[in-house]
Design a protein around this nucleic acid. Structure first.
Lengths: 241, 241
DNA sequence: CTGGTGAGCCTTGCATGCAAGGTCGTACGC
DNA sequence: GCGTACGACCTTGCATGCAAGGCTCACCAG
């Protein structure tokens, strides 16, 4: 058994919270949320690979929770397309589909270009405010690229692209975009760190993208971001450039 | 009380399924699924307007279910962005945001154009197969337009656009697109039937779109679909053309 | 009349219990 | 040896019970 390893210590008693010595000062986080994050993390990190059969009781025991919050977590993950709930069988981790990388990249391109299109129609002041924000993010990326910290860079990269969506003000697009980030993380993890020497190239491309946004050049952005997304994927995943 | 009217007869006993005289031969549908559909329908149809506070017990009573399946339904609807769950308060129906129509339309345009772009790169045979399918859908639409059955036409219209996404083979995009349809339905319902005399125009535009897809003219499609989506929204919603 | 305080009611969070459904393994018949 | 049927186990579906948290409203003091 023991398909995954979601919890640390196995709780022998059923007390709700084992006192918790977490440094987080905030509320102890509801059980359902803990279950959700734990299972999602296990899936995205590849710890629970595609095809794995998860059972509520099993996960619940490992996390020291009852089945109820785990069940709810499974439901949420099914809605996100990460889990497939089989009626009376269990929950299987949906395997990454063969062409999923291409699918995600295409949608990201479409959403980002749409965001830039809206920005191009907005007041120049709005674009300049965004540009200032992007400049700050670029500075971070430059140092991360210099340190060749691929994991941190991946996060900074995501922040850059999300900033575009946020600035566009299209909340519907932003929500959809967020689910894509999860999927991409899942595809990327496990091969992170493949090409740290190319991170600087990605930063350069980000600078170019920022300039195109500021200029309101939608077509130029569309071309550039298409290339960029493909390269990002290649660098982080270690595929062909 | 009685904010919504989700159930028909009030079940006095707690038997799981009241024999059910439904003509559907399939399984009696799980309780959680029934709760989900009922609540979603109530939201999308506008029966439960934005801002309304729903309680699990209340809905459960109306549907003859316990709180558990209703709770699960609420969770799913929150994931879809239709419900906002307040920790110990209840669930409020998320109101349609002011710019939501524009947001949805932009994303639809982006996703559809992306689909056509991929189709344009695919084999011509694939486009021809799609074209045949679209032609069949167009025939349906023509008769529905003639009958000025706006509700049925709205469904046929959705089917046309979904067919494009399906044919592209981008399952990620297709999933995202499906959630958009829900939102658009919610914006549309309540004003359906405003401009039945313009349905023929929409059919014509669909024919044009189909031709552009067949020809692989991505830019032409992008332009045409942008106009078309705006007009569709206007016709079904009764706004300015 | 106004401000504050307390209790009660309402809500959900979560654990548990029971029952139904499915799968797999085994034993039996051929 | 092979096919089939039966049984036990494992899974989820859902109802229920208990407890915690928040809001509202009434009551009281000033």
């Amino acid at each position: 058994m023991a398909p995954t390893d979601l919890a640390g210590p196995a709780p022998t008693d059923s007390s709700p919270a084992p006192v918790s010595a977490a440094p987080v000062p905030a509320a102890p986080l509801p059980a359902a949320e803990r279950a959700y994050r734990a299972v999602k993390q296990a899936i995205l990190s590849g710890e629970s690979p595609g095809g794995r059969l998860l059972s509520e009781a099993e996960v619940g025991t490992q996390l020291g929770l009852s089945r109820t919050p785990v069940h709810e977590a499974f439901l949420r993950l099914q809605a996100e397309g990460l889990l497939d709930l089989l009626p009376r069988r269990g929950a299987v981790v949906v395997p990454v589909a063969p062409g999923e990388a291409r699918d995600v990249l295409e949608v990201r391109r479409a959403l980002e270009t749409a965001a830039v299109r809206r920005l191009a129609e907005a007041a120049a002041a709005e674009r300049e405010a965004l540009d200032a924000r992007l400049a700050a993010l670029l500075a971070d990326q430059r140092s991360l690229a210099a340190e060749q910290d691929v994991a941190a860079f991946a996060q900074a990269d995501a922040a850059f692209h999300v900033a575009l969506l946020e600035a566009s003000g299209n909340t519907v697009a932003l929500r959809l975009y967020a689910t894509l980030a999860d999927r991409q993380q899942r595809m990327t993890i496990g091969s992170v760190g493949r090409r740290p020497e190319h991170l600087a190239t990605l930063v350069d491309e980000h600078r170019t993208l920022a300039a195109l946004v500021l200029a309101g050049d939608v077509d130029g952005f569309d071309d550039a971001v298409t290339t960029h997304l493909g390269r990002t994927h290649a660098v982080l995943l270690g595929g062909a450039l």
